[in-house]
Design a binder for these strands. Structure first.
Lengths: 192, 192
DNA sequence: CCAAAAGTGTTGAATGTACACCCATGG
DNA sequence: CCATGGGTGTACATTCAACACTTTTGG
């Protein structure tokens, strides 16, 4: 029976699988005095999340208070949104991710350790919901220093084609890569 | 005596006064079953806030759960941060505002109804914590369609000088004015 | 006239997008 | 040698910071 004094902690883990941005949702009741991250760790495997941030706190339709977290993972699994609250949280999580992808290195938490630009492009297409040019994706992310090349290539498939270079994200922590579009502090133009 | 099952709703209202970005903090205990915005309305005068958004939920040092809201106001008053938790929330609010100022029209909620570019510049300097060029501020905000001129000028002071034109924000609701720095959907360049 | 404050013009750099073209592989 | 997929070069538009210059006022 729902208790309006209880507090639920919800994990919304986003990840790309089969070209789709899936949301895996899990929740637990927070014990009295329990830290939020402890409850979150009971709700989901935090080690599988490359990035975690708080999403939103709201009163659920059953009257319970809930605090949702957005997690990003390479290996999304199970726990699809069940009720209306969970659908809304999943949508909020997707919207948040879409925003962050364009000005942070958030992709690191969705893509495998190393990847080709084509593979990365598929991740971005799934997460953003619109087409992305591999050419420009590579150029933007390399210029910003978000990606770096690693040794080795991926062999082409049966259809042939030039072998693809492998890349990785330079950092595995969320970083802002395009800090201010305008109104920078004076004399702070990037020059590297 | 602090009760670890109680839920506190905290309003952090930011506003510029005398060239400083002040944080006015107020909190209430949320009643069982009470909606979050109802509790927030008991904590502060929501009508005086041009914009409100949720900031963060955390467990306070005394064990209570707290959900903080960021508000922006033209008329900051009283309620300065008292304890360590409140100081941290005020700092989080300032950081959030700094980020939003550069890619949204958030200034509308801090500036008076109409203002000169110099006056608006003072607001931005206080909020951002670094110098801002009035020339470029005007150009960027006009180009984005964030500001518009209104009739009339502000008479110069004793020292003379050209009378300043008056401007206002075109919208009084938070809008994103610089949506994607990169990775826009194909063919979506602004052209007007 | 001169100082002060506001506003406009202009330049140069950085950033992104689009698209043509070249490279490397399988069949 | 051709189709396919990967990558680079180049041209162009947009945006912004910096700074010189002009405008309009008070004394």
């Amino acid at each position: 029976m729902p208790d309006s004094t209880s507090h639920v902690v919800i994990s919304v883990a986003l990840g790309v699988r089969a070209g789709r941005l899936e949301a895996a949702i899990r929740s637990v009741e927070r014990a009295p005095g329990e830290p939020l991250d402890a409850a979150l760790a009971r709700a989901t495997d935090v080690a599988a999340l490359g990035h975690v941030e708080q999403l939103e706190t709201r009163v659920l339709r059953d009257g319970r208070l809930a605090t949702a977290y957005l997690g990003l993972t390479r290996t999304p699994d199970g726990g699809l949104p069940a009720d209306a609250d969970e659908h809304e949280l999943a949508e909020a999580a997707r919207a948040r991710l879409r925003g962050k992808l364009s000005y942070t290195n958030a992709g690191f938490a969705l893509a495998p350790e190393t990847f080709t630009i084509s593979e990365l492009r598929e991740v971005y297409v799934a997460a953003l919901g619109h087409d992305v040019s591999a050419t420009n994706l590579q150029r933007v992310l390399l210029r910003r220093g978000v990606l770096e090349r690693v040794d080795g290539v991926r062999a082409p498939g049966r259809a042939g084609g030039r072998p693809a270079s492998l890349f990785r994200f330079r950092s595995q922590r969320l970083e802002i890569t395009d800090e201010f579009a305008a109104l920078r502090p004076p004399g702070s133009r990037a020059s590297g």
